[in-house]
Computed example of a mutant assay.
Amino acid sequence: MSLHLDDRQPREVAECTLDVLTRATYLETLGPARLEGHSFGGVVVIKAAVNSDALGGVVA
């Protein structure tokens, strides 16, 4: 399963990271969550991974 996210607060790393962590919590109910991000999204998924022990992997 995959989700495409649009940031509520573009260019706000902390806000976007919280959004990703919230959605990752949902994905974890379906199995190991893996995040992928490009450019700014890469920064966000790396920050999210640092703040979650449950994420299965990150691609930036």
Rank of each mutant, 00 (worst) to 15 (best):
M1W: 09
M1F: 08
M1C: 09
M1H: 12
M1D: 12
M1T: 05
S2D: 10
L3Q: 08
L3P: 05
H4A: 15
H4N: 13
L5S: 00
L5N: 01
L5I: 10
L5E: 01
L5Y: 02
D7Y: 11
D7F: 13
D7E: 12
D7C: 10
R8M: 09
R8F: 15
R8C: 06
Q9M: 07
Q9D: 06
Q9F: 05
P10T: 02
P10H: 01
P10V: 11
R11W: 12
R11S: 10
R11T: 15
E12A: 10
E12H: 15
V13S: 03
V13L: 10
V13W: 09
A14I: 14
A14P: 13
A14D: 15
A14N: 13
E15L: 15
E15N: 12
E15W: 12
E15G: 09
C16S: 15
C16M: 06
C16E: 07
T17D: 04
T17W: 03
T17M: 08
L18C: 10
L18Q: 15
D19Q: 11
D19C: 04
D19T: 04
D19G: 01
V20K: 00
V20I: 09
V20S: 08
V20Q: 04
V20E: 03
L21F: 06
L21I: 03
T22G: 11
T22F: 10
T22Y: 01
R23D: 00
R23I: 05
A24L: 03
A24F: 01
A24S: 13
T25G: 12
Y26K: 11
Y26Q: 11
L27F: 04
L27V: 08
E28V: 12
E28F: 05
E28D: 15
E28P: 02
E28A: 14
T29Q: 08
T29E: 09
L30Y: 05
L30D: 07
G31C: 10
G31T: 13
P32Q: 13
P32I: 00
A33N: 02
A33Q: 05
A33R: 01
A33H: 01
R34P: 03
L35Y: 08
L35F: 12
E36V: 15
E36S: 14
E36C: 13
G37A: 03
H38M: 00
H38L: 09
S39R: 03
S39N: 13
F40I: 11
F40M: 07
F40T: 09
F40P: 15
F40S: 06
G41A: 01
G42K: 09
G42C: 05
G42E: 06
G42D: 10
G42N: 06
G42I: 02
V43Y: 07
V43G: 02
V43M: 10
V43K: 10
V43A: 04
V43T: 13
V43C: 06
V43S: 07
V44M: 00
V44I: 10
V44K: 01
V44R: 04
V45T: 07
K47D: 09
K47T: 12
A48R: 02
A48I: 00
A48G: 06
A49D: 11
A49N: 09
V50F: 14
V50S: 03
V50K: 08
V50Q: 14
N51A: 06
S52D: 04
S52I: 00
D53S: 14
D53R: 04
A54G: 14
L55F: 04
L55Q: 00
L55C: 00
V58M: 01
V58D: 03
V58H: 01
V59D: 05
V59R: 09
A60D: 07
A60L: 11
A60R: 07
A60N: 06
A60I: 12
